[in-house]
Design a protein around this nucleic acid. Structure first.
Lengths: 194, 194
DNA sequence: CCCTAATGTTTATGGCGTAAACATATCTGG
DNA sequence: CCAGATATGTTTACGCCATAAACATTAGGG
């Protein structure tokens, strides 16, 4: 329990050290137990031990803080996808593993997942941009369509929509959040066989 | 412009007539232009011309008002599905028409659509319960699986997930909200051929 | 080494949800 | 027909929130 930038005692210091990072960290922690609609700047400030308005030295407004949290979440999701793709190896079914990782991430961090999609308009680009998961999916789709770009795009959108919809419906308790249902819905043998 | 329960002049009356219905109506109107996180009881009360706390004679709290709005939205969505199913006729492709109607409803009333799924846990039951759309979908799914109930359920969940995910991703600007993309993704010739 | 910019704090404003006490209209039974 | 009782609104009040403005402290570069 030591402050970041100095070796002084733990006595209250006027300057925090790295308030911005501390606020983001506190925000991510809050999102593990609260919906993002219930996050308050004052509460985060309190948790970090700083006055309510100190936040505004690092973020122009609440929206900007939420955006930073969303960006953080987006990178976490991207890393989860990447890790799943790597763990699955380069076989063609690796794509399904990334789909399952997508849904599991949403169920493990629902508030953060929702925040990501309500704050960032480029999640797809970030996740599908130039990642292993993206290459797996595109490879699979192209193999099935013989290279037709229109059809390839359709397959990729369908795949994304299925996992995103499944994640949403499970988070919203429209479907039971059960692993075997996830596995059955994202089974590449049925989802991509045609 | 006449009050509901009396024929008196339009002068301010102590009693409103049907405040509950007026609040729901105002709420639905507000949801056409604002996200549901931004609607306030005080604003709705103002619009209806009543004191801020009058709301509490008809709803225990804000959550209850939102729930009522969600219920209303759920029925609107159900009617849209039913209408689409009827308009498409009983051919097997009628199912696709209900899917397109689902996505178009979401894009036409995004705040209401989101509210429905954040307030009601039984949307699927309400929409898929005993409607024409539900019968079309189940028929189609059973025809493809030869009656296997497990497989039928999987197909139905996949179908719901695709349209729900597509709606969400388009609302969140992750995908362009274009009609021809909707049509291509929900084409029964590709979505259900296997 | 001082002074300037960066970073925090205090104070203030207006909006919000909601509880409590009070006011008025409608309904219901004698 | 009329007196409560009940339903429905209003006023007032409280504590929380986001945010703006003015002020305080500190760190770091000429």
């Amino acid at each position: 329990m030591v402050t970041v930038s100095t070796l002084q005692s733990e006595k209250a210091q006027y300057h925090h050290g790295d308030l911005r990072a501390a606020l983001v960290e506190a925000g991510l922690r809050a999102l593990e137990t609260s919906d993002f609609a219930d996050i308050s700047l004052r509460q985060l400030a309190r948790e970090v031990g700083v006055s309510a308005t100190a936040v505004y030295r690092h973020f122009p407004d609440k929206q900007a803080l939420l955006q930073a949290l969303g960006h953080e979440g987006m990178e976490m999701l991207g890393r989860a996808q990447q890790a799943a793709a790597e763990a699955a190896g380069p076989e063609s079914s690796g794509f399904a593993a990334t789909g399952r990782a997508y849904v599991r991430f949403a169920l493990a961090h629902p508030a953060l997942f929702r925040l990501v999609f309500s704050q960032c308009e480029e999640v797809g680009d970030a996740i599908f941009g130039d990642t292993l998961a993206a290459r797996l999916l595109q490879e699979k789709a192209e193999a099935l369509t013989g290279g037709d770009p229109q059809e390839t795009q359709r397959l990729m959108v369908q795949a994304w929509a299925v996992v995103h919809g499944l994640a949403m419906l499970m988070m919203d308790k429209q479907l039971p959040a059960e692993d075997d249902l996830i596995d059955r819905v994202i089974d590449p043998a049925t989802l991509f066989k045609r």
